[in-house]
Computed example of a mutant assay.
Amino acid sequence: MFEKLKTSLLANNARFKEIHHPSEGNSEKVAAVRGTEVGQGAKAMLCRAKEDENLLVLAVLPGDRKLDFKKLAQAIPCKKITLAPPEVATEKTGCVIGAIPPFSFSSDIRLIVDPDLLARYEEIAFNAGRLDTSIVLNTQDYVRIAQPSLYYICVTE
């Protein structure tokens, strides 16, 4: 996944930097290692519809926010949506949980991004298919390359 992602970014003339770091298990620690804010982290969560296990969605939101499953279900639309089990996420994305980048390289996985992630920062940061490597990517380049659907999917506080 890392090589596929990097090849895509280079082929599309994306403005990005690659950061190698120790594997970290939470958003705060990895943001500190990257030198970014927690909210810049593009948290990618593979979800699937309860009524159709083949309906997969990669929900991407700021690292300091929580996913509102009801809003995500309305965006699809479907009745109910949950996180995909870890083994399904690994099988479908080629990445372990926590390393999934905010890109869908599969026509079977719909990509939905919360607009707040894109509005808050000029760059987003994410694990690049590996827990020990991150990419900090220009936000405009991300939207141009990933072409996500945009819906407000975060819990409002």
Rank of each mutant, 00 (worst) to 15 (best):
S106F: 08
A49P: 02
V113T: 06
R15S: 15
E51S: 06
L111E: 09
L137I: 04
N13P: 05
R34K: 13
K66T: 07
Y152E: 15
V113E: 03
T139K: 06
I81E: 00
L55N: 00
A14S: 12
I153V: 01
A84F: 04
L131F: 09
G41L: 15
K71D: 01
C47K: 01
Q147D: 14
I81C: 05
P101R: 02
E51G: 05
I81N: 04
V30Y: 12
A84E: 06
E91L: 15
N26S: 12
K6W: 09
L67D: 15
Y152N: 14
P85L: 12
D141E: 02
A125H: 10
T82W: 11
R110H: 08
N138H: 10
I76T: 01
G41F: 15
A32L: 15
C154W: 06
K50T: 09
E53F: 02
V113N: 04
E91W: 09
E18K: 02
I19C: 01
R110K: 13
G39F: 14
A89C: 10
Y121G: 05
A32W: 10
L46H: 05
E51V: 02
P86I: 10
K43P: 11
Q147N: 14
N54I: 00
A89R: 09
I76Y: 02
E51W: 02
K17Y: 06
E53V: 00
I76C: 00
D116E: 14
L61N: 07
M1S: 10
P148L: 10
T82G: 14
N138F: 09
R34D: 12
C154L: 10
R120N: 15
E123D: 15
K70L: 03
F16I: 00
A89I: 08
L56Y: 01
E28H: 15
I76H: 00
L10S: 03
D116H: 04
F105P: 05
L55E: 01
A31F: 11
Y151R: 09
E18P: 03
A84P: 02
L150D: 09
L150V: 06
C95M: 08
L117N: 13
T139M: 08
